[in-house]
Design a protein around this nucleic acid. Sequence first.
DNA 1: CTTAAGCGGAGAGATTTTCTCCGCTTTCAG
DNA 2: CTGAAAGCGGAGAAAATCTCTCCGCTTAAG
Lengths: 215, 215
Amino acid sequence: MRADAVRSRRRILDAAREVFLERGLDAPLDLIVRRAGVGPATLYRRYPDREALVRDLTGDLLTRLESAAETAAAVDDDAFAAVRRFVHAAADLRMGAAILVLLEGLVVDEELVLIRTRAANTVETLIQAAHETGRLRRDVGMGDLVLLSIRLSRPLPGGLDRLDPDGSLLHRHLDLALDGLTAASSDEPAATAGPGVPLTFADLITAAARPTTAG
Amino acid sequence: MRADAVRSRRRILDAAREVFLERGLDAPLDLIVRRAGVGPATLYRRYPDREALVRDLTGDLLTRLESAAETAAAVDDDAFAAVRRFVHAAADLRMGAAILVLLEGLVVDEELVLIRTRAANTVETLIQAAHETGRLRRDVGMGDLVLLSIRLSRPLPGGLDRLDPDGSLLHRHLDLALDGLTAASSDEPAATAGPGVPLTFADLITAAARPTTAG
DNA sequence: CTTAAGCGGAGAGATTTTCTCCGCTTTCAG
DNA sequence: CTGAAAGCGGAGAAAATCTCTCCGCTTAAG
């Protein structure tokens, strides 16, 4: 693959992630083209249709996500610290794009499902370990963490993103929120949230699966 | 005002809030019409242009928001509980719409600014009281709370909203996150987030103000 | 029961979006 | 350095979407 082609692909993928997050998966490709600073032909040449683009973007993000999970598991001794690291990394990748895109029902691709499963397993292991150390609330599951990461890292409308040009506010808010997910110790009055049911990754997938076959 | 007109207005306003949150302030009015289940003429008859709609929506939400703040202040003895109640109420109203709309630069209307200021003052009082009880972290300001409420209550793309048909998950996550905003007591190991600077409401306004006069 | 206010659908006109053709530029192997 | 193949961007036609109005029917309220 030629060097300039690689560059274009990266630009398009980055732009697509932002635009899809801001405007939804059916945003005009035109916007992506403009944000990427490439000509329309460059996009259409590589991706014959919208789905091809979505597929490539998903694969890209999932791969990076999985490697983030592995890094987190390898670097931190403490399981909760590893979870924390992973959530931050996921937010940096704007995992929301991967998830929403992945689950919009477009992807039946076996290879992607494989990557997804592998990433999910790695993270699940991390979370179980954190549960066992007692630092992570038992009623907080992977679904909760994923949702948290999606919500806090999603681009905001109305220029509010200017509040956080370098992402430091995002990470600060993530840290604060993560503190709310720690298990209450016996004498800690802070945790006022009642007990609940952990949200699993499978819950997310089920929810996002288009009700195509239903009815 | 005739009863069916009142009903139409309510439908349109509710639909507009959702659509603006999902697609941004320049979403097609057509979508709003469709979601509201009314004819296009019904919208255009009441609102000659987009701005009129935005203005009415903003006023509606801000008024309700202010009354939520007052209720919270009146009902709860504990200041932190009042803040908590207010944040939940704000999320129910999808405050995000009010804020984004307010701040997208459209509103120069004196009346709206007045309502906004009144609402902000009420909330600010609540927050200061919560700071003084020592239960709310000093480095968490109104801007942080507003942002949190916006982020957690914003509609999600890709069918993920099906996870939470009745809003209970939203409130659960809010509670968890709010627990992260409590002040660390001397022997509490949970709060790992380092100290930071509180985000004020003014910060939000400044950030969102369109750089119209700039340049 | 009258009457005026309000409603929704059809659709013309304007705008936006998709997608391709083609001449110019960049990469890279030899 | 040079040639050839791969890649690029802009212009713009065709299709799709969006805006906004006219008008005959329905509903509310006195």
